[in-house]
Design a protein around this nucleic acid. Sequence first.
DNA 1: TATATATTTGTAATGATTATAAATTAGGAT
DNA 2: ATCCTAATTTATAATCATTACAAATATATA
Lengths: 138, 138
Amino acid sequence: MRKVIEGVTEMLLNRNIKPSYQRIKVLEYMMNNRIHPTVDQIYSALQNDIPTLSKSTIYNTLNLFIDAGLVRLITIEENETRYDIDTSNHGHFKCVECGEIYDFSINIDDLEAKGISNFKINDKNVYFRGVCSKCHKM
Amino acid sequence: MRKVIEGVTEMLLNRNIKPSYQRIKVLEYMMNNRIHPTVDQIYSALQNDIPTLSKSTIYNTLNLFIDAGLVRLITIEENETRYDIDTSNHGHFKCVECGEIYDFSINIDDLEAKGISNFKINDKNVYFRGVCSKCHKM
DNA sequence: TATATATTTGTAATGATTATAAATTAGGAT
DNA sequence: ATCCTAATTTATAATCATTACAAATATATA
Ligand SMILES: [Mn+2]
Ligand SMILES: [Mn+2]
Ligand SMILES: [Zn+2]
Ligand SMILES: [Zn+2]
Protein backbone atom coordinates (compact mmCIF):
# COMPACT_ATOMS: atom_id res chain seq x y z
CA MET A 1 0.00 0.00 0.00
CA ARG A 2 3.07 2.21 0.24
CA LYS A 3 3.41 4.54 -2.72
CA VAL A 4 6.82 4.36 -4.31
CA ILE A 5 8.17 7.80 -5.00
CA GLU A 6 9.41 7.97 -8.54
CA GLY A 7 12.62 9.98 -8.70
CA VAL A 8 13.02 12.52 -11.43
CA THR A 9 15.80 10.49 -13.05
CA GLU A 10 13.53 7.46 -13.21
CA MET A 11 10.68 9.59 -14.55
CA LEU A 12 12.89 10.59 -17.45
CA LEU A 13 14.33 7.14 -18.09
CA ASN A 14 10.86 5.60 -18.06
CA ARG A 15 9.98 7.86 -20.96
CA ASN A 16 13.20 7.29 -22.86
CA ILE A 17 14.53 10.74 -22.14
CA LYS A 18 18.22 10.91 -21.36
CA PRO A 19 18.51 12.44 -17.88
CA SER A 20 20.93 15.26 -18.52
CA TYR A 21 21.77 17.66 -15.72
CA GLN A 22 19.62 20.41 -17.23
CA ARG A 23 16.63 18.13 -17.74
CA ILE A 24 16.85 16.80 -14.21
CA LYS A 25 17.00 20.31 -12.80
CA VAL A 26 14.02 21.51 -14.84
CA LEU A 27 11.93 18.52 -13.85
CA GLU A 28 13.01 18.85 -10.23
CA TYR A 29 11.94 22.48 -10.28
CA MET A 30 8.55 21.58 -11.72
CA MET A 31 8.03 18.88 -9.09
CA ASN A 32 9.02 21.12 -6.18
CA ASN A 33 7.35 24.35 -7.39
CA ARG A 34 3.82 23.61 -8.43
CA ILE A 35 3.05 27.16 -9.42
CA HIS A 36 2.48 26.71 -13.16
CA PRO A 37 5.69 28.58 -13.89
CA THR A 38 6.61 30.50 -17.00
CA VAL A 39 9.83 29.88 -18.89
CA ASP A 40 11.33 32.96 -17.30
CA GLN A 41 10.51 31.79 -13.80
CA ILE A 42 12.21 28.47 -14.40
CA TYR A 43 15.15 30.16 -16.06
CA SER A 44 15.69 32.61 -13.19
CA ALA A 45 15.39 29.92 -10.55
CA LEU A 46 17.92 27.60 -12.19
CA GLN A 47 20.58 30.16 -12.98
CA ASN A 48 22.13 29.64 -9.56
CA ASP A 49 22.61 25.93 -10.15
CA ILE A 50 23.56 26.25 -13.82
CA PRO A 51 25.31 29.59 -14.50
CA THR A 52 25.73 28.80 -18.21
CA LEU A 53 22.07 27.92 -18.67
CA SER A 54 20.42 29.09 -21.86
CA LYS A 55 16.78 29.96 -22.24
CA SER A 56 16.74 27.83 -25.38
CA THR A 57 17.40 24.80 -23.22
CA ILE A 58 14.35 25.57 -21.11
CA TYR A 59 12.19 25.78 -24.22
CA ASN A 60 13.69 22.61 -25.70
CA THR A 61 13.32 20.71 -22.47
CA LEU A 62 9.76 21.77 -21.84
CA ASN A 63 8.69 20.91 -25.38
CA LEU A 64 10.35 17.54 -24.91
CA PHE A 65 8.47 17.03 -21.66
CA ILE A 66 5.18 17.99 -23.28
CA ASP A 67 5.67 15.48 -26.10
CA ALA A 68 6.46 12.84 -23.51
CA GLY A 69 3.36 13.71 -21.51
CA LEU A 70 5.36 14.78 -18.47
CA VAL A 71 3.97 18.31 -18.35
CA ARG A 72 1.12 20.12 -19.97
CA LEU A 73 0.68 23.57 -21.41
CA ILE A 74 -1.55 26.19 -19.83
CA THR A 75 -2.63 29.18 -21.90
CA ILE A 76 -5.21 31.10 -19.94
CA GLU A 77 -4.01 34.40 -21.28
CA GLU A 78 -2.60 35.07 -24.68
CA ASN A 79 1.16 35.59 -24.60
CA GLU A 80 1.52 34.01 -21.17
CA THR A 81 2.43 30.39 -21.60
CA ARG A 82 2.69 28.37 -18.43
CA TYR A 83 3.60 24.77 -17.70
CA ASP A 84 1.91 22.33 -15.36
CA ILE A 85 3.54 19.24 -13.91
CA ASP A 86 0.09 17.96 -12.98
CA THR A 87 -1.28 16.35 -16.13
CA SER A 88 -4.46 15.07 -14.51
CA ASN A 89 -7.80 16.60 -15.47
CA HIS A 90 -8.39 19.69 -13.36
CA GLY A 91 -9.44 23.28 -13.78
CA HIS A 92 -7.41 26.49 -13.50
CA PHE A 93 -8.35 29.78 -11.98
CA LYS A 94 -6.31 32.89 -12.64
CA CYS A 95 -6.59 35.82 -10.27
CA VAL A 96 -6.50 39.03 -12.23
CA GLU A 97 -5.24 40.89 -9.15
CA CYS A 98 -2.25 38.87 -7.94
CA GLY A 99 -1.77 36.82 -11.11
CA GLU A 100 -1.63 33.56 -9.22
CA ILE A 101 -3.02 30.45 -10.86
CA TYR A 102 -5.04 28.11 -8.66
CA ASP A 103 -5.96 24.51 -9.33
CA PHE A 104 -9.45 23.30 -8.68
CA SER A 105 -10.96 19.87 -9.08
CA ILE A 106 -13.79 19.50 -11.51
CA ASN A 107 -15.69 16.62 -13.05
CA ILE A 108 -15.27 17.61 -16.65
CA ASP A 109 -16.57 14.26 -17.84
CA ASP A 110 -19.84 14.77 -15.98
CA LEU A 111 -21.04 17.58 -18.17
CA GLU A 112 -22.33 16.67 -21.57
CA ALA A 113 -21.18 18.67 -24.55
CA LYS A 114 -24.07 19.02 -26.98
CA GLY A 115 -23.11 19.57 -30.57
CA ILE A 116 -19.89 17.60 -30.82
CA SER A 117 -21.07 14.01 -30.80
CA ASN A 118 -18.85 11.65 -32.80
CA PHE A 119 -15.93 14.00 -32.16
CA LYS A 120 -12.71 12.45 -30.91
CA ILE A 121 -11.66 14.45 -27.87
CA ASN A 122 -7.96 14.47 -27.03
CA ASP A 123 -7.86 16.90 -24.13
CA LYS A 124 -10.12 19.16 -22.14
CA ASN A 125 -9.30 22.48 -20.54
CA VAL A 126 -11.29 24.58 -18.10
CA TYR A 127 -10.10 28.09 -17.36
CA PHE A 128 -11.75 30.54 -14.98
CA ARG A 129 -10.72 34.11 -14.38
CA GLY A 130 -11.56 36.39 -11.47
CA VAL A 131 -10.37 37.52 -8.06
CA CYS A 132 -9.08 35.06 -5.49
CA SER A 133 -10.24 35.10 -1.85
CA LYS A 134 -6.91 36.48 -0.70
CA CYS A 135 -7.15 39.54 -2.95
CA HIS A 136 -10.89 39.88 -2.49
CA LYS A 137 -10.53 40.64 1.22
CA MET A 138 -8.39 43.70 0.65
CA MET B 1 -42.91 38.39 -28.86
CA ARG B 2 -41.15 39.32 -32.06
CA LYS B 3 -37.42 39.70 -31.61
CA VAL B 4 -36.15 43.05 -32.81
CA ILE B 5 -33.00 42.67 -34.86
CA GLU B 6 -30.41 45.07 -33.60
CA GLY B 7 -28.45 46.59 -36.46
CA VAL B 8 -24.71 46.85 -36.14
CA THR B 9 -24.88 50.64 -36.00
CA GLU B 10 -27.30 50.46 -33.09
CA MET B 11 -25.14 47.85 -31.38
CA LEU B 12 -22.27 50.29 -31.42
CA LEU B 13 -24.29 53.33 -30.42
CA ASN B 14 -25.85 51.43 -27.52
CA ARG B 15 -22.36 50.92 -26.16
CA ASN B 16 -21.22 54.48 -26.78
CA ILE B 17 -18.94 53.52 -29.62
CA LYS B 18 -18.91 55.91 -32.52
CA PRO B 19 -19.96 53.89 -35.57
CA SER B 20 -17.15 54.63 -37.97
CA TYR B 21 -17.07 52.90 -41.34
CA GLN B 22 -14.26 50.57 -40.24
CA ARG B 23 -15.97 49.64 -36.99
CA ILE B 24 -19.24 48.89 -38.76
CA LYS B 25 -17.49 46.71 -41.29
CA VAL B 26 -15.59 44.74 -38.64
CA LEU B 27 -18.72 44.17 -36.59
CA GLU B 28 -20.70 43.26 -39.71
CA TYR B 29 -18.06 40.72 -40.60
CA MET B 30 -18.16 39.21 -37.12
CA MET B 31 -21.95 38.98 -37.26
CA ASN B 32 -22.05 37.36 -40.69
CA ASN B 33 -19.03 35.06 -40.30
CA ARG B 34 -19.31 33.19 -37.05
CA ILE B 35 -16.06 31.32 -37.51
CA HIS B 36 -14.04 32.73 -34.59
CA PRO B 37 -11.81 34.58 -37.04
CA THR B 38 -8.25 35.69 -36.51
CA VAL B 39 -7.13 39.25 -37.13
CA ASP B 40 -5.67 38.21 -40.45
CA GLN B 41 -8.91 36.64 -41.60
CA ILE B 42 -10.83 39.81 -40.84
CA TYR B 43 -8.15 41.94 -42.44
CA SER B 44 -8.10 39.92 -45.66
CA ALA B 45 -11.87 39.85 -45.93
CA LEU B 46 -12.29 43.61 -45.50
CA GLN B 47 -9.54 44.74 -47.84
CA ASN B 48 -11.97 44.68 -50.75
CA ASP B 49 -14.34 47.09 -49.03
CA ILE B 50 -11.62 49.24 -47.49
CA PRO B 51 -8.46 49.29 -49.63
CA THR B 52 -6.64 51.60 -47.23
CA LEU B 53 -7.40 49.44 -44.22
CA SER B 54 -4.63 49.01 -41.68
CA LYS B 55 -4.12 45.98 -39.49
CA SER B 56 -3.71 48.36 -36.56
CA THR B 57 -7.31 49.37 -37.01
CA ILE B 58 -8.43 45.77 -36.72
CA TYR B 59 -6.50 45.38 -33.48
CA ASN B 60 -7.76 48.70 -32.12
CA THR B 61 -11.33 47.92 -33.06
CA LEU B 62 -11.35 44.42 -31.63
CA ASN B 63 -9.83 45.58 -28.35
CA LEU B 64 -12.47 48.27 -28.22
CA PHE B 65 -15.18 45.67 -28.82
CA ILE B 66 -13.76 43.41 -26.12
CA ASP B 67 -13.78 46.23 -23.57
CA ALA B 68 -17.36 46.97 -24.53
CA GLY B 69 -18.34 43.32 -24.17
CA LEU B 70 -19.28 43.00 -27.83
CA VAL B 71 -16.85 40.19 -28.58
CA ARG B 72 -14.75 37.85 -26.54
CA LEU B 73 -11.28 36.46 -26.90
CA ILE B 74 -10.58 32.80 -27.61
CA THR B 75 -7.10 31.44 -26.92
CA ILE B 76 -7.20 27.69 -27.35
CA GLU B 77 -3.71 27.59 -28.73
CA GLU B 78 -0.87 29.84 -27.81
CA ASN B 79 -0.07 32.34 -30.53
CA GLU B 80 -3.45 31.92 -32.19
CA THR B 81 -5.80 34.56 -30.91
CA ARG B 82 -9.35 34.37 -32.17
CA TYR B 83 -12.43 36.49 -31.62
CA ASP B 84 -15.97 35.37 -30.92
CA ILE B 85 -19.07 37.49 -31.52
CA ASP B 86 -21.02 35.09 -29.32
CA THR B 87 -20.37 36.19 -25.74
CA SER B 88 -22.74 33.70 -24.15
CA ASN B 89 -21.34 30.83 -22.09
CA HIS B 90 -20.43 27.98 -24.41
CA GLY B 91 -17.55 25.64 -25.06
CA HIS B 92 -15.09 25.49 -27.94
CA PHE B 93 -13.69 22.51 -29.74
CA LYS B 94 -10.69 22.84 -32.00
CA CYS B 95 -10.05 20.15 -34.59
CA VAL B 96 -6.32 19.54 -34.83
CA GLU B 97 -6.78 18.24 -38.38
CA CYS B 98 -8.74 20.95 -40.18
CA GLY B 99 -8.19 23.69 -37.61
CA GLU B 100 -11.87 24.55 -37.45
CA ILE B 101 -13.32 25.73 -34.15
CA TYR B 102 -16.74 24.37 -33.22
CA ASP B 103 -19.12 25.72 -30.61
CA PHE B 104 -20.84 23.38 -28.23
CA SER B 105 -23.36 24.08 -25.52
CA ILE B 106 -22.39 23.19 -22.02
CA ASN B 107 -23.80 23.80 -18.57
CA ILE B 108 -20.69 25.24 -17.03
CA ASP B 109 -22.60 26.42 -13.98
CA ASP B 110 -23.78 22.88 -13.25
CA LEU B 111 -20.37 21.58 -12.34
CA GLU B 112 -19.01 22.55 -8.98
CA ALA B 113 -15.45 23.73 -8.75
CA LYS B 114 -13.98 22.45 -5.52
CA GLY B 115 -11.12 24.46 -4.13
CA ILE B 116 -12.06 27.97 -5.17
CA SER B 117 -14.93 28.81 -2.85
CA ASN B 118 -15.17 32.51 -2.00
CA PHE B 119 -13.48 33.31 -5.30
CA LYS B 120 -15.10 35.93 -7.49
CA ILE B 121 -15.42 34.40 -10.94
CA ASN B 122 -15.52 36.82 -13.86
CA ASP B 123 -15.53 34.47 -16.81
CA LYS B 124 -15.36 30.77 -17.57
CA ASN B 125 -13.80 29.09 -20.56
CA VAL B 126 -13.99 25.49 -21.72
CA TYR B 127 -11.69 24.36 -24.49
CA PHE B 128 -11.55 20.89 -26.01
CA ARG B 129 -9.13 19.66 -28.60
CA GLY B 130 -9.39 16.65 -30.90
CA VAL B 131 -10.61 15.52 -34.30
CA CYS B 132 -13.98 16.55 -35.64
CA SER B 133 -16.43 14.08 -37.18
CA LYS B 134 -15.75 15.43 -40.67
CA CYS B 135 -12.01 14.73 -40.43
CA HIS B 136 -12.48 11.52 -38.47
CA LYS B 137 -14.29 9.84 -41.37
CA MET B 138 -11.37 10.22 -43.75
C1' DT C 1 -15.04 78.20 -42.73
C1' DA C 2 -12.04 77.53 -38.99
C1' DT C 3 -10.88 74.77 -35.12
C1' DA C 4 -10.77 71.01 -31.99
C1' DT C 5 -11.27 66.14 -31.35
C1' DA C 6 -11.49 61.43 -32.70
C1' DT C 7 -10.11 57.92 -35.74
C1' DT C 8 -7.22 55.75 -38.96
C1' DT C 9 -2.97 54.72 -40.93
C1' DG C 10 1.95 53.45 -41.48
C1' DT C 11 5.91 52.36 -39.28
C1' DA C 12 8.77 51.28 -35.45
C1' DA C 13 9.29 48.82 -31.14
C1' DT C 14 8.52 45.02 -28.22
C1' DG C 15 8.62 40.40 -26.70
C1' DA C 16 8.01 35.50 -26.90
C1' DT C 17 9.18 31.55 -29.37
C1' DT C 18 11.62 29.00 -32.88
C1' DA C 19 15.52 28.06 -36.08
C1' DT C 20 20.18 27.40 -36.79
C1' DA C 21 24.83 26.44 -36.31
C1' DA C 22 28.79 26.23 -33.34
C1' DA C 23 30.46 24.53 -28.92
C1' DT C 24 30.30 21.26 -25.40
C1' DT C 25 29.34 16.95 -23.33
C1' DA C 26 28.88 12.02 -22.79
C1' DG C 27 29.52 7.22 -24.08
C1' DG C 28 31.47 3.57 -26.62
C1' DA C 29 35.28 1.54 -29.32
C1' DT C 30 40.00 0.94 -29.91
C1' DA D 1 43.58 7.04 -21.92
C1' DT D 2 42.52 8.62 -26.59
C1' DC D 3 39.59 8.95 -30.43
C1' DC D 4 35.22 9.20 -32.54
C1' DT D 5 30.46 9.91 -32.96
C1' DA D 6 26.05 11.39 -31.58
C1' DA D 7 23.37 13.95 -28.42
C1' DT D 8 22.80 18.02 -25.94
C1' DT D 9 23.49 22.70 -24.83
C1' DT D 10 24.46 27.27 -25.93
C1' DA D 11 24.45 31.76 -28.28
C1' DT D 12 22.60 34.28 -31.72
C1' DA D 13 19.60 35.33 -35.49
C1' DA D 14 15.03 34.99 -37.49
C1' DT D 15 10.18 35.03 -37.16
C1' DC D 16 5.80 36.53 -35.98
C1' DA D 17 1.98 38.64 -33.40
C1' DT D 18 0.85 42.52 -30.97
C1' DT D 19 1.41 47.15 -29.23
C1' DA D 20 3.24 51.98 -29.27
C1' DC D 21 3.58 56.10 -31.45
C1' DA D 22 3.17 59.96 -34.34
C1' DA D 23 1.48 61.77 -38.63
C1' DA D 24 -2.50 61.97 -41.66
C1' DT D 25 -7.27 61.95 -42.26
C1' DA D 26 -12.01 62.36 -41.05
C1' DT D 27 -15.69 64.12 -38.14
C1' DA D 28 -18.03 67.30 -35.17
C1' DT D 29 -18.62 71.90 -33.28
C1' DA D 30 -18.51 76.90 -33.12
MN1 LIG E 1 -2.66 22.86 -12.57
MN1 LIG F 1 -17.92 30.45 -29.99
ZN1 LIG G 1 -5.32 37.09 -6.03
ZN1 LIG H 1 -11.67 18.66 -38.65
